[in-house]
Design a protein around this nucleic acid. Structure first.
Length: 225
DNA sequence: GACCAGGCACATC
DNA sequence: GATGTGCATGGT
């Protein structure tokens, strides 16, 4: 039985479409993916609003604008110095390898695109995959802390599973579909925020109500208890 | 005031 | 190769 499909159907039935990724353009999605690293989306919104107000939410303008100026605009998103450098690194990739055109970057096939993104200092697997899925609209599953937390809490993966192993699990059990991967990731984030992962007990956890811990699914998974 | 948030790179052992 | 730490703002 494909448990991950069953989990998805239950989550979608309970919560419906999440309409991710918020953003008016692919470039805004990219910037959001960079800024939301270990940061609440609310703070990212403030930063993106600042960029819009300053009329610089554009790859060329952000590439050419002074570092200090960009830093000040994205400040609400936290880690603003390092994130400014990271954004500049990505903007340099777009300028140098893609003629400064975001659409060229996003037209790159997902394997090559992921590789190029991962080569950028400041882009790790989650940010790269978020850009591939949500900005470039190519099917790759995004694994984040909530994904790991929810799956380990329910005993569906072993606690030592790394990013790639978890991603492979989703790719193995699910059809390769952009809309499915989009909704599934968003639903896991939604439920993960309410999930009992932070607490030992499991009350008022919507996911646990829907899906009581059923034991390991992967052959190598640990027994959760 | 402590803790957390849609990670990642780098230092050190 | 595993583990620890810095990065920073804003909400609870």
């Amino acid at each position: 039985m494909k448990i991950l499909q069953d989990v998805y159907e239950r989550l979608f039935a309970a919560y419906g479409p999440q309409h991710w990724w918020p953003g008016d353009s692919p470039f805004e999605v990219i910037v959001g993916a960079m800024l939301t690293q270990n940061t609440s989306w609310k703070n990212v919104e403030r930063a993106i609003d600042n960029l819009k107000q300053a009329d610089v939410l554009d790859a060329t303008r952000m590439h050419e604008m002074p570092t200090e100026e960009l830093a000040e605009l994205i400040r609400p998103a936290g880690y603003y110095r390092i994130k400014t450098a990271r954004l500049k690194n990505l903007l340099a990739l777009i300028a140098n390898l893609h003629d400064g055109r975001v659409e060229n970057l996003l037209a790159t096939n997902k394997t090559e695109l992921r590789e190029q993104l991962l080569a950028v200092n400041g882009i790790g697997p989650e940010t790269a995959d978020a850009i591939v899925l949500y900005a470039s609209q190519q099917p790759i599953f995004v694994v984040d802390t909530y994904t790991t937390r929810v799956l380990t809490r329910h005993g569906w993966i072993n606690a030592e599973a790394d990013y790639h192993q978890i991603q492979e699990y989703f790719h193995l059990e699910l059809p390769e579909n952009v809309d499915l991967f989009n909704e599934y990731h968003a639903l896991l984030v939604k439920v993960g925020k309410q999930h009992c992962g932070r607490k030992p007990e499991c009350e008022e956890c919507p996911l646990c109500e829907l899906l009581p811990s059923g034991g390991p699914l992967l052959p190598e998974a640990n027994n959760p208890s």
